[in-house]
Design a binder for these strands. Structure first.
Lengths: 244, 244
DNA sequence: CAGTGGTCTAGACCACCGA
DNA sequence: CGGTGGTCTAGACCACTGG
């Protein structure tokens, strides 16, 4: 998962295309080449590094997918306009994350039910109003402290045996990933004040803010699930890093 | 930036390695191959698609960097354990984002100053306590409505002429990106209640929550800047999508 | 038109894993 | 040991851009 930035570059055995990438990255990072400036062409790199065109091409192609340079066929390669700060926001299974911190994960099950979908839920899941849907409300704990309140609706067509899950040991996410391979998802990160019941479940007051992750996942032809996850702001934040 | 999902696959002209990727992706999405299952080897793909090894290799390599499959030298390629929902969270220039929505961006300048760094700021910027730092406080507007309160400290070593910027027309981000090429950044997304002054500047009450983006950017040897950006939760959220 | 990048092949050598 | 992936080469054809 994490790139090993530990050992600098073992000089010799580093692949040629990586050496080319490093050289270009260095010039960009050092500011020798500013956004918009041309980057040496594949032919130039072939000469300078005594590599084949495939190798030079691979170096530039990877830098392009990393967003550092822009390539235009027929025109050339240039340093990308803005090195946009962009980083992979990974939405992981919370239990996994807690376990990785060496802490104990727990779950309190508040609701596990089959319901008739209201208008909003039905629309979000792509079902008719009144259709049968699964509904769970769970509180996830880290070392006994509540860190997430999860309100989720699941489409029975995507996960018929969802309610049979033992939520104390298996998180909804991991069950869904297993039986409904993920093809698409969208999310939104918001902030809000918790409702009374939510605050109670999270052992906080209704005056303290929460981070909210609202998520909609699609599996093949079906919307699999919509979830609303509340995190007490005092105990959780989303973090990330970026480098290049 | 966005992948074009508009036109299905133009059958003929689609590159061979993309066709191979699509075929594998399809089997994974459809659930034919579950996490942990083996994916056809390069040799098998060569035979099935009548392509060279380089082409088969490229297909598998790209799927691996996309996180869909796991490759182990000497062992083989398997479907990745969890299709983690991961998506690129792009941190863009706010003015750009507003302009893209067809709205009018504006900026209100509250503070532009040179100060002596307090202990915390100095530590975060990697300077001695009392060192000279630049400090700006701005409010960014969309169609005249405040959407971001930005409190930022800048390292003079990274951007000596920062204070000379006309912040009404140039955002700090774009100035910094121009004069201090970005090599590294980390961020954290939190939620909080605004302080009185912040709430006033954002035309909100101190009881309404804010989304907070805390960011630290590194340029070469220097920490370039630390910023704390408050968004009224009622007017802004971070969104993203993922597909594979 | 020459120069660029986009793709592809047939072959090669190596390092690694598992039986 | 055979099968796997990781890298690399020398050459090829194409599509596009720019002067």
């Amino acid at each position: 998962m994490a790139k090993d930035r530990s050992d600098p570059p073992r000089p010799a055995d580093r692949p040629a295309y990586e050496q080319v990438k490093d050289w270009i990255r260095g010039h960009i990072a050092r500011g020798d080449w500013k956004p918009g400036d041309p980057v040496p062409s594949e032919a130039a790199l072939m000469a300078r590094f005594a590599v084949s065109r495939m190798t030079a091409h691979r170096a530039l192609r990877e830098l392009a997918t990393e967003g550092l340079v822009t390539r235009v066929q027929g025109s050339g390669t240039t340093v990308a306009q803005l090195h946009r700060i962009s980083s992979r926001l990974v939405i992981r299974d919370l239990h996994e994350e807690v376990a990785e911190r060496g802490h104990v994960a727990g779950t309190r099950v508040l609701t596990v039910a089959q319901e008739k979908a209201g208008a909003e839920v039905a629309a979000a899941l792509g079902l008719r109003k009144g259709a049968r849907v699964f509904h769970t409300v769970l509180v996830h704990l880290e070392n006994g402290v509540p860190i997430q309140y999860e309100d989720r609706y699941v489409n029975p067509l995507a996960a018929p045996d969802y309610l049979a899950t033992d939520f104390a040991t298996t998180s909804p996410t991991s069950h869904l990933l297993r039986c409904a391979p993920l093809t698409e998802a969208s999310y939104s990160i918001e902030a809000c004040l918790p409702r009374a019941a939510e605050a109670r479940a999270l052992a906080m007051t209704t005056a303290e803010p929460c981070l909210v992750m609202v998520r909609r996942t699609v599996s093949g032809a079906h919307v699999a699930s919509i979830a609303r996850q509340l995190y007490p702001a005092s105990r959780y934040s989303f973090t990330g890093a970026f480098q290049a």
